[in-house]
């Protein structure tokens, strides 16, 4: 396929994709590499990395194996990134498509709602949700999804505004097609490429939001997430900085990978924006 070939022709995109595959591989092999609960006490607390062959990445304040938390944390991170992004994109696309296609009063109402979400800083909004509904991991994912949709709604709406007056959409209306099939079968497939690219941004931000919550000890403490590990390392940041730094690097690499893949997708889906080779 042409898009795939273009995607693979960009070194940044390939590196990003490879890094992403590494994270996926870590998540998949977590149970094999580190069976058992990664949150259990594994050894003496605060051992530096590379000092004990049993704990290559050392142990944290509570004597957990950091390497085990990193492997199992990859699962949580991917779950949060994937699920929250799916929620945000679903809401965003639905709102943007309805507003852009119908225009008029529907557009007016939906866009004012979108602006209401956009004017509040989304991290503050997220804190409110967590404070009200608790910090169970499912709630956290849902809350991150609910605060992340406005930008994708605006993007979808903009695409719909240009596409809805195209002649092929008029032709579908002249044929007597109903609104929903026109929106989802005719317009949406043409509007998706930039929205898909934007999904990578949403995913990166969702991962960061969860980490930020965990850093404030507000995320679900019963899951082995990278953010939680950073949070526990905060107390010993000045002396045993590696406890926070190792999951920090893991987050950095994952977000970088997602962003590079998004950039590569953008270049592949909009080849005209890129300079000719």
């Amino acid at each position: 396929m042409k898009v795939l070939r273009l995607f693979l022709s960009s070194p940044a995109a390939v590196i990003g994709f490879a890094l992403f595959l590494v994270v996926v591989a870590m998540a998949a092999s977590a149970d094999l590499a580190y069976p058992g609960d990664p949150l259990d006490l594994a050894g003496r607390p605060l051992q530096w990395p590379f000092t004990n062959p049993r704990f290559p990445l050392g142990t944290d304040v509570q004597g957990r194996d950091i390497a085990a938390v990193i492997f199992h944390g990859a699962r949580v991170t991917l779950a949060i990134g994937g699920a929250a992004t799916a929620i945000a994109m679903t809401i965003g696309i639905a709102v943007g498509a309805l507003a852009g296609y119908h225009g008029g009063l529907v557009d007016e109402i939906l866009m004012r709602l979108t602006e209401a979400f956009q004017t509040l800083p989304n991290f503050l909004l997220l804190l409110v949700f967590i404070a009200v509904f608790g910090s169970d991991i499912a709630t956290v994912i849902l809350a991150i999804g609910v605060v992340s949709w406005p930008a994708s709604a605006r993007l979808t709406r903009a695409e719909f505004l240009t596409l809805r007056s195209r002649e092929f959409v008029q032709a579908a209306r002249v044929l007597g097609m109903r609104d929903l099939p026109i929106i989802f079968r005719e317009i949406l497939p043409n509007a998706l490429p930039p929205v898909i690219v934007y999904a990578s941004v949403v995913m990166a931000v969702a991962i960061l939001l969860e980490s930020a919550l965990a850093f404030l000890n507000l995320s679900d403490p019963n899951v082995p997430s990278w953010g939680n590990l950073i949070g526990t390392g905060r107390a010993v940041l000045r002396t045993q900085w590696y406890v926070s730094a190792i999951p920090g690097v893991a987050i950095l690499i994952t977000v970088l990978a997602v962003s590079l893949v998004g950039q590569g997708l953008n270049d592949a889906l909009n080849p005209r924006l890129k300079g000719r080779p």
């Binding site: 002649e167 002249v174 007597g176 109903r178």
Partner: peptide, 23 residues
């Protein structure tokens, strides 16, 4: 009611590139 009537009256458009859904 209009949707039922559309089969009696149809339209051909100007721009051969914009009038067919590329997907």
């Amino acid at each position: 009611a209009l949707r039922a009537q559309t089969r009696h009256i149809q339209m051909v458009f100007q721009d051969p590139h914009a009038s067919l859904n590329p997907r």
